[in-house]
Design a protein around this nucleic acid. Structure first.
Lengths: 165, 165
DNA sequence: CACCACTCGTTGCTCATGCAATAGTCGCTG
DNA sequence: CAGCGACTATTGCATGAGCAACGAGTGGTG
C-alpha cells in the first residue's frame, strides 16, 4: 500500500510497543489476582463488587440500568443478567422509574451495603498492595494523566467511527 | 462507620486510586476498540491474533500448549478449545512432542502466517493510533517501567500466596 | 524395577458475556 | 391526537472461559 509493507508492520516504536505489552500484562495479572482474592475471601466476583461500588456512590444508592452498564463497562444485556444474579442473592433490587416507564432502577439493598462493607477492605488492601504501593504520588499522577489521555482517545474513536470509518 | 473502618476504606490514596481507575478504563476501552477493529477487518478475535503472534515469534513457529497458554494469558483448558477452533480454520496444527509423549505442539500453518500478515497492519495501526501516538518516547519508557513493576509484584504474589495466605 | 508423586493436555460442567431481535414506552411532528 | 422514530430493558442464541476430574506419561526413590 505504501512504499514499504515493513514500514507499516514495524510502525509501532519499540518503547511504545514495550509499554503496550507491559500494559496488557499488568492488567491481566493484577485483575486476576484481585478477582481471586475477592472470590476467596467473600465469594463474590469482581464485577459484583464493581456494581456495589457504583450503586453506593450514586444518589439514593440506585442507578438506571443503562447508566450502570456504562459505569461497570458492560453491555446492556450483560448487565441485565448480572443484576438478575445479584437480585437472587438479595444484594440489589429492581424498581420502576416513575418518570419514565421504560426505565428500571437497580438499587442497593441493606444486604448489598453489608456485603460492600465486608468486601471493601479485602479489595482495597489488594489494590494498595498490588498497585498503589508501587507508585509514589508523582508517578500515580503521571500514570493517571497518560492513561486518561488514552481513554479519551479511545472513547472519541468509539463514538466517531460510525461516521468516518 | 468508625474511624478505623474509614481509615481502612480510604486506605488507597487519591492519586493512586485515580490512577487505578484510569488504568481499568483505559484497558477496557482500548482493547474493546482494537478487538472490534480486528473483527471487522479480518473476522478474527484478538485472542486468535495473539496466538498467531506468539507462535510466529517462537522457534520453528511452534510452542507447547502449556507455554503458549502462559504467553497468551489463558488457562490450559481455555487454550485447548481455542486451538481446537483455530485448527478447524487451518490456522494452526497440533503435533506430538517427540521427547515427551505427554506434550503437544501448536504450530503455525502457512494459512496462519498469511492471516497474521493480513491482520498485523490493522492491529498495529490500532495500537499506534489508540496508544503509541499518545505517548512520546520518555513517557512510553516510564509507563513500561511502572507497569513492569506492577506486573512483577502481581506475579510474585501469585506464585507465593500458596504458602503465605 | 516397582512405585508414587507430579506434569501435560483434554473433557464435562457451569457460568458469564455480546449480538440481534423483541415488546413496551416516550415524545415530537404533522 | 395519531403515527412514527428513537430509546429502554429483556430475551434467545451462540460463543468464550475457568475449575475440577481424568487418563496418559514422566522421573526420582527405595
Amino acid at each position: 500500500m505504501t512504499t514499504a509493507n515493513d514500514a507499516q508492520i514495524s510502525s509501532v516504536p519499540p518503547a511504545q510497543m514495550a509499554a503496550w505489552r507491559a500494559f496488557l500484562e499488568a492488567h491481566a495479572h493484577t485483575t486476576e489476582l484481585l478477582a481471586r482474592e475477592l472470590k476467596d475471601s467473600q465469594g463474590i466476583a469482581l464485577t459484583w463488587y464493581d456494581v456495589l461500588v457504583q450503586l453506593h456512590e450514586a444518589d439514593d444508592h440506585r442507578l438506571r440500568m443503562q447508566e450502570l452498564a456504562e459505569r461497570v463497562l458492560l453491555s446492556k444485556s450483560g448487565l441485565t443478567r448480572l443484576i438478575d444474579r445479584m437480585e437472587r442473592h438479595r444484594l440489589v433490587t429492581r424498581s420502576a422509574c416513575p418518570s419514565d416507564r421504560r426505565g428500571t432502577f437497580a438499587e442497593l439493598t441493606p444486604e448489598g451495603i453489608a456485603m460492600l462493607r465486608r468486601a471493601a477492605p479485602t479489595h482495597l488492601r489488594g489494590v494498595r498492595e498490588h498497585f498503589a504501593e508501587l507508585l509514589d504520588d508523582d508517578e500515580a499522577t503521571i500514570l493517571a494523566d497518560l492513561l486518561g489521555r488514552i481513554t479519551r482517545a479511545a472513547s472519541d474513536a468509539t463514538t466517531t467511527d460510525r461516521c468516518d470509518e
